[in-house]
């Protein structure tokens, strides 16, 4: 299964779809996180639709790249990326956080096909990816391992245990991405508990650091290329982003970290994204994103 490597125009359209999915599923569930999923959307789309070699048709494909969101609370973007990439039908998104659906509030391997390891307690995912990267190298696999972290999550001590481990064992098949949106649930990261200078910290811990505008898809693709080309040490991409990106009244406001939009707010947000709740819900109910190819975008606007 090759990498998808969609064109820039297709990636931007896909990112727009993902944002519409996020708002629509949150409007339906009336529970979940808005801010982080929207800040992760653009680099997440680049990851799923260009960078990674994944095979939703065969989840245990031994050649697949491995991905893991250490920030389990951004399930709206994780599930949207998965559904748009063909892991499960788009209509399932409407069951987000519902008792009868398979999409738990935080990712669960035994509920959702394609989740490699369950997550939800912050600070643990990089360690998991270290184990995956070490084991993959032991197996002489050429696969890459991708870990998405949050910036507030950098306050967890275990992150730095894992950081030391990855550098010590020179895990250059490991690429971490930090969604650096500068907000966490209680406020600005620098006010809650400062993490700066973050790039210097990671460099001091022996990592190759790439800083990029996390909403600039070409820049993100170049960062992934740089990570791929970096040998002898792991790479962390500091993706500078805006919490709530794409929705005017959510942008850069920490109060949107952990709450969903009301139905009225969702209508307003979807209008900004060029659609409506009714028409995007209909799209989720009626379209399938299975077998995504560069020429089939599967969606109304």
């Amino acid at each position: 299964m090759p990498r998808l490597q969609l064109s820039l125009d297709e990636l931007r359209e896909r990112a727009l779809f993902v944002r519409r999915d996020i708002i629509t599923l949150l409007a339906r569930s009336q529970s979940g996180h808005s801010g982080g999923p929207l800040s992760s959307t653009d680099f997440g789309t680049a990851l799923f639709f260009h960078e990674m070699d994944v095979n939703p048709e065969r989840l245990d494909d031994p050649g697949r790249d491995l991905w893991h969101f250490s920030i389990g609370h951004v399930t709206p973007v994780i599930y949207s990326l998965m559904a748009e990439r063909g892991y499960f039908p788009l209509v399932d998104l409407l069951g987000f956080r519902q008792f009868k659906g398979h999409l738990q509030g935080h990712p669960s391997k035994h509920d959702t096909p394609g989740i490699e390891v369950s997550a939800g307690s912050l600070g643990q995912g990089l360690s998991v990816c270290c184990g995956m990267a070490y084991g993959s190298r032991f197996d002489r696999s050429t696969r890459r391992v991708y870990c998405v972290m949050g910036d507030g999550e950098q306050q967890e001590g275990q992150i730095w245990e894992a950081s030391m481990f990855a550098a010590h064992y020179k895990l250059d098949n490991l690429c971490a991405v930090i969604d650096y949106n500068r907000k966490q649930i209680d406020g600005d990261v620098q006010d809650v508990l400062g993490i700066a200078p973050l790039a210097d910290k990671w460099r001091a811990f022996g990592w190759h650091v790439v800083e990029v505008d996390g909403h600039d898809i070409p820049g993100v693709l170049a960062a992934f290329d740089e990570a791929r080309a970096t040998k002898g040490k792991p790479t962390v991409i500091l993706a500078h982003t805006v919490m709530g990106k794409g929705i005017s009244f959510m942008e850069d406001d920490y109060k949107w970290h952990g709450v969903p939009p009301s139905v009225e707010q969702a209508e307003k947000a979807l209008a900004e994204l060029g659609t409506s709740l009714a028409s995007w819900t209909r799209r989720l109910e009626t379209h399938t994103a299975r077998a995504v190819t560069p020429s089939a975008n599967g969606g109304a606007s």
Binding site: L66, V117, S127, C129, C130, M132, G135, Q158, E161
Partner: peptide, 21 residues
Amino acid sequence: FLQIGIAEQNMMCVAAGLAAL
């Protein structure tokens, strides 16, 4: 054999990553 150092939280999750493979 994998020496983790004094980092039990990391050890538990590195083990999980290996088990996932």
